[in-house]
Design a protein around this nucleic acid. Structure first.
Length: 596
RNA sequence: GGUCCGGUAGCUCAGCUGGAUAGAGCAGCUGCCUUCUAAGCAGCAGGCCAUUGGUUCGAAUCCAAUCCGGAUCACCA
């Protein structure tokens, strides 16, 4: 039921006949007719005027006449300069809509029906600090892309790779040991991840002070950074950890568990989840065999100092070290090992997607290239879902310096803002307290999620904490509101809608026709978003649909419509609209309320 | 310096596989609630699409150069 395709066929047949051309249907470029003009689809006639030996207008007329003759679904056409605007008949659109409204899963393919399994990694936090706005973008983006891929029938395995080891955790541990006085989440009343983050900041403050003292004594900045007692101690702690020192491991486990307790709460508020969680403490040694394998295949080479490297200069990626001279792994070694391990663990997986910020673009180019050179055929299916940084008006966020927008604060603030607006409206006075709280969360989180997801992932985005996220206009709550309005009408109707018949001979209001046309686009939008890993397509589409519904709502009565056939069509129309809004939003990880 | 990404209304963003008069929202100004939810609708105002050249019947969109901003080029992760 691809309309463009069958129109293209008609058009190519027409131009081939008229102008003795050999155009294929896929060469015909159709676009949606702009709002200011009458029509459903537009053909630009310039490409044909040469063969036609006619003016653009006459060419358009000729094609229009011929396709109307060939295809009875084309009701009228008009020509404006070099543009042929084609209108399909109302009965044709109603036929399309009948199919749409009969499909309870319109646009959504059955679970696991594609036969393709995709592993998608996202979130991947460090355990030395709480989540901030940057992580929020990562989590929401990863979860949304996973959901969108699921609408295409793919089996998506969501994985988290927790960075639970390394020097940064040792910094928090050391600071807690030195300055913490045994403080715990219970004793401080702080959420575990926030408590650990507090000591990460403490470390940095004390460390900076040490550096300053040393440099004022005449030491170079570089040396001071290395020789500051705190840094030396942190390094020692890391060595102890790697050696399995019981006391260090005990401290590490305790503090990491505080963090996990905290993350659990944040993840739940964000509404994200994972099928599998990996920990770097288990994977950081992986990849050494891979290096051996690469050496044997001659893909890697040993340098004089015993480190192992690969030359990627032919691919414009320079030389890259894959093993240090002391034989230990670098970051990319782990990633190589982990990737290979995962494909062994999930043999059905044919693609791996990494949701990681664009500051690591280079890293992933190198990673995929090495995997390819090692001969893993799935390497070309690996994809770096690279997203832009979230910036504040004063620039990048820095955890160490505390210039971050905390994820928990942000979420709580949004829910609170939703509460204020909702209570002021007085529309939910009959709700129970529990229903109210759920609604505030739905709206507040809807606003936050939509705000982030409507922006093209590739682009960096700006967030100004002084200007709170809007609840009006192009926002999540605007879309949620349209859904709630429809549900309200359907509640008032209070009868089953299943047996309502869509009559073929009703006249369509302009907004009704637009709604049908826009609903028709939904499956393509999801498909495209899945193909390009871009939730913003779905977000923008859903907003367009909600806006169009609001226009329809103010111009067309539903329950008060006196003509039976029209009224019943409208009920079906808004029912499908609500379903598409809901499924569009759910594919972004955003809930829609029945009432608000 | 090399590579990559970006520069569209006062602000935040769409549009970028070339097509008609460049779109939304916010902020500002006007109207519209005794009628299915006004978190809404209708309207006004706001633009040398960074600059310059090129390709084309046609360029915000493609190409080149320049300017501005950011990222990256570790035996860090």
């Amino acid at each position: 039921m691809n309309i463009e395709h069958f129109l293209s066929k008609t058009i190519s047949a027409a131009v081939n006949q008229l102008f003795t051309l050999n155009t294929k249907p896929e060469d015909v470029i159709l676009q949606k007719t702009k709002k200011e003009f009458e029509g459903d689809f537009t053909l630009v006639t310039f490409p044909y005027i040469k063969a036609a030996k006619l003016s653009p207008e006459k060419t358009g007329e000729a094609i229009g006449e011929e396709i109307s003759r060939l295809n009875s679904d084309i009701s009228t056409y008009n020509v404006v300069k070099g543009f042929l605007n084609i209108s399909l008949s109302t009965s044709f659109w109603l036929k399309q809509f009948k199919t749409i409204s009969a499909d309870a899963h319109y646009g959504i393919k059955p679970a696991n029906s594609s036969g393709k399994q995709i592993m998608l990694e996202y979130s991947s936090p460090n355990t030395n600090k709480p989540l901030h706005l940057g992580h929020v973008r990562n989590n929401l983006l990863g979860y949304a892309v996973a959901s969108i891929l699921k609408t295409q029938g793919h089996d998506v395995v969501k994985v988290n790779l927790v960075n639970d080891r390394g020097i940064h955790i040792c910094k928090s541990m050391l600071a807690w040991k030195l300055f913490g006085n045994g403080e715990t989440p219970e004793s401080s009343g702080l959420k575990g991840d926030h408590l650990v983050g507090k000591y990460y900041v403490e470390f940095d403050k004390a460390y900076k002070k040490e550096i300053q003292e040393l440099t004022s004594q005449g030491m170079s900045k570089e040396n001071a950074e290395k020789q500051a007692p705190l840094m030396v101690q942190a390094q020692e702690m890391l060595l102890k950890w790697e050696a399995g020192d019981p006391e260090t491991i005990k401290l590490w486990k305790m503090m990491n568990n505080w963090v996990y307790d905290g993350f659990k709460v944040s993840y739940q508020k964000l509404g994200v989840e994972f099928d599998k969680t990996y920990y770097e403490s288990n994977t950081y040694l992986l990849g050494k065999e891979v290096v051996q394998e690469g050496l044997e295949k001659g893909i890697f080479y040993k340098k004089e100092n015993n480190s192992v490297a690969i030359d990627l200069s032919a691919d414009k990626l320079d030389e890259k070290i894959v093993l240090r001279s002391d034989g230990t792994s670098v970051y990319i070694t782990q990633d190589l090992g982990t990737a290979i391990e995962r494909f062994k663990e999930y043999p059905k997986t044919s693609q791996m997607i990494y949701t990681v910020g664009n500051e690591q673009d280079y890293h992933f180019k190198v990673l995929f290239k090495i995997l390819e050179k090692l001969g893993y055929d799935w390497a070309k299916e690996c994809y770096h879902l690279s997203y832009g940084m979230v910036e504040l008006p004063e620039g990048k966020m820095k955890s160490r310096e505390g210039t971050v927008v905390d994820a928990d604060d942000l979420m709580d603030g949004m829910v609170e803002a939703a509460r204020e607006v909702t209570e002021a409206s007085g529309k939910i006075d009959s709700f129970s307290q529990e229903e109210k709280d759920t609604l505030f969360t739905t709206i507040g989180m809807g606003a936050l999620k939509y705000f982030i997801l409507k922006v093209d992932p590739k682009k960096k985005m700006l967030f100004d904490p002084k200007e709170s996220i809007d609840l009006q206009g192009n926002t999540g709550p605007f879309i949620q509101y349209a859904h709630a309005r429809i549900k309200s009408i359907l509640r008032n109707y209070n009868k089953p809608t299943k047996d309502l018949v869509i009559e073929a001979n009703i006249h369509l209001h302009e907004k009704e026709r637009e709604l049908v046309k826009l609903l028709y686009d939904f499956p393509k939008v999801l498909e495209e978003a899945a193909k390009t890993y871009n939730p913003s397509d779905v977000a923008n589409y859903t907003y367009e649909l909600a806006k169009l519904f609001n226009q329809f709502f103010s111009e067309c009565p539903v329950l008060k419509e006196e003509n039976n056939a029209v009224r019943e069509f409208r009920i079906k129309l808004i029912e499908s609209t609500a379903l598409v809004i809901k499924n569009g939003m759910l594919s972004l990880g955003i809930e829609v309320p029945e009432r608000m």
